[in-house]
Design a protein around this nucleic acid. Structure first.
Lengths: 221, 221
DNA sequence: TTCAACTTGTAACGAATGTTACACTTTTTT
DNA sequence: AAAAAAGTGTAACATTCGTTACAAGTTGAA
């Protein structure tokens, strides 16, 4: 078990060095290993422990089963998995979690976390801030989905990362199409049309907004 | 100010009766009134205080501006507005909040909430559970959006509230179309096709699942 | 360099959904 | 009971997007 990684995750880093040995003794954390491509958890699995990703990286996605899948995010160690659901009444994984490289996950029991929350104020604040930030993240994801047209999604994406009418595409078209949940050729077509209409120009990953009003209009429909 | 409502909200109900007078003295909560239809908050407004809806009801929606709007939920007093964002680094309203009847909102400063969180364990747990539950709610909303076809959304909606192949439609078609973010005639068409295909039957609000496998298949595409 | 793998552009076509309009039914109000 | 309002079904047509296929460009490794 990678205790260094465990205690550098954004939550457990607030357990003081002196207390870490005792914490490990009390918590008796379980360690699980996952090969690249393995399922760490599936939608509906109960979240009965805090899942700390201590090595590797995973991706989360919704609705897999067989048909479509919508990627939500990729998570790189050291980080927590589904921390908000540990204390929820519906304490189940809302997504599938899949290892995208060989990974290690440390499980810490719910009761141990609750104990730590009540006796360690820094831990508590970190936990709450973590959940708040995740809420923000997932809300942004929802906002993207509430925009129905591909051009609208692109506009939102570009405006979100623009500064002085300049922006950088941090994903290639294949990844972006997957992120938006649309077909790649459709994305390419929409992008081409936005360029044809002189709303933006693109040089490789670098983009420039030529017509800000027109770009914003895309989102309103 | 409706203090009864304030102290019956799911968070402040954990402030003990003895401490309520002092709490009010210290917090000096501000009260705001909103007429039906008024904007309580818009996307991007800073969340610098805890918003407690003490009277009336509001609806929240994304991307309004002028074009489309996606309703997220309706909230009835006594309840909190955007509690998760009070402690987030990005402490801004993620949605527009609109009064759907004459309403009263009580504002309690962030510092007062933080103080209460650290000295009142029940308050703390209520706050965390509240955020966890909201996370679950918003994740379910996202799941609905990750399903692209209307029939798929309908299938998810029906399966979610079915018991022994029986379900009840708790919204009329107009409301459901708005909830899904689709056009009302399109929803009506999809519903008709599902009935024609003998996957479900509908008697007013009561539905019966005739072909469970077919219904589930709708979601996988 | 040369080849393979990845990435992008694009075209033709079909499927799903949106838009608009109107008739009809049900519910609510007067 | 009559009138008004709300809800529903449906048709014709437009639009957007998905699917499939292939060509061309780019990158990186052998």
């Amino acid at each position: 078990m990678d205790t260094d990684a465990l205690f550098s995750c954004p939550l457990c880093c607030h357990i003081l060095p002196d207390e870490r040995t005792i914490f490990i003794q009390d918590a008796k954390p379980k360690t699980k290993f996952f090969k690249k491509g393995a399922l760490v958890a599936v939608q509906g699995d109960p979240v009965d422990a805090l899942y700390v990703l201590t090595k590797g990286s995973v991706k989360t996605e919704m609705i897999s089963e067989a048909g479509n899948s919508l990627p939500i995010e990729t998570i790189t160690a050291p980080q927590l998995l589904a921390p908000a659901f540990l204390l929820a009444e519906e304490h189940f994984f809302p997504v599938d979690v899949i290892a995208i490289e060989d990974s290690e996950v440390v499980l810490i029991s719910k009761s141990m976390i609750i104990k730590q929350l009540s006796c360690n104020e820094a831990f508590l604040h970190a936990y709450m801030k973590l959940n708040s930030n995740r809420m923000h993240f997932i809300t942004e994801r929802l906002k993207l989905f509430s925009i129905k047209t591909i051009k609208g999604k692109l506009a939102q994406y570009m405006l979100e990362r623009s500064k002085n009418r300049h922006f950088v595409m941090d994903k290639n078209q294949t990844q972006l199409a997957e992120y938006f949940g649309v077909a790649r050729p459709s994305l390419s077509r929409s992008l081409s049309e936005m360029i044809d209409d002189k709303v933006i120009i693109l040089n490789n990953k670098d983009g420039e907004i030529l017509n800000l009003d027109a770009l914003k209009e895309y989102m309103l429909q």
